[in-house]
Design a protein around this nucleic acid. Structure first.
Lengths: 139, 139
DNA sequence: ATGTAAATGAAAACGCTTCTCATTACTATT
DNA sequence: AATAGTAATGAGAAGCGTTTTCATTTACAT
């Protein structure tokens, strides 16, 4: 994933787009809200508007560079598309996000869709729970 | 499910609550947005505010009478809790909602949570696709 | 009947996201 | 390197679903 991907997506190479892609790539974090990205930009001294962040993230999504998730219903979370497909498991206490893959579940979903007469286009699987750390904290 | 369930939930028996529960019960529809419920009330000549609809649905959710889903990220969808747990498969063209249960997936989710050190509290599984009817319509 | 706390309706506020529009910047062409 | 033409940007307003506020009304225990 590099700036050339921006051009491949048919988007002009502009500072906001390059900076936003950099933030998604360089951070050890993997999941960002638009606000998260915006604050990172401000911290780096970049004067990029929140509207632009939303626009660029949406364009990146259309281009297949990032995925958008709706973990908790309140706001969107963006994640750079790298590595294979995976689902998410989230801590309802601390907000931690882990990832997992289960081939059996993947296959079963296709089977279910087929049996129901649907041509499957996508799926969403979130597991919510209390992570190991949070279980220790409050019993 | 009857009005007595409202009392059991520790809620006073009021006209808005009774009417809303009625709508959820009587309709052949199973999934309602707050707006859907509100419009049904208006159509029946009830002068109940949208704020009340939201409040009552939220209370019903806390009481375990209804479940709230976030199918498409835009708005919440409510469903009366009756029958067993099930997941949803949705048509991205016409918005149809079907339901399914898969014990294997249910079990695998628990296993995954356990393996990741999480104490599972909930899960969300939505399959998106094009339903049989919509496949016919546009090929 | 009566008192008290809970519930309601209307409107305002809210948080996240998108839109508007005047200005700026990128890229292709000369 | 200069220019033209289109796309991208920033700031603020608007949009949308939802929640809150607050004065008024209602249900329920006494």
């Amino acid at each position: 994933m590099e700036s050339s991907d921006i051009k491949k997506a048919g988007l002009k190479l502009t500072l906001p787009r390059v900076k936003i892609l950099e933030i998604l790539e360089k951070s050890e974090r993997r999941h960002f809200s638009a606000e998260d990205v915006y604050r990172n930009l401000i911290d780096e001294g970049e004067e990029i508007g929140l509207a632009t962040v939303y626009r660029v993230l949406t364009q990146f999504e259309s281009a297949g560079l990032v995925s958008r998730h709706h973990f908790d219903s309140g706001h969107s979370v963006f994640e750079l598309n790298q590595g294979a497909h995976h689902d998410h498991i989230l801590c309802v206490r601390c907000g931690k996000v882990d990832e997992f893959v289960d081939e059996t579940i993947e296959k079963l979903q296709h089977d279910i869709a087929e049996r129901a007469g649907y041509q499957m286009t996508d799926h969403v699987l979130y597991i919510y729970g209390i992570c190991a750390d949070c279980q220790k904290d409050t019993g």
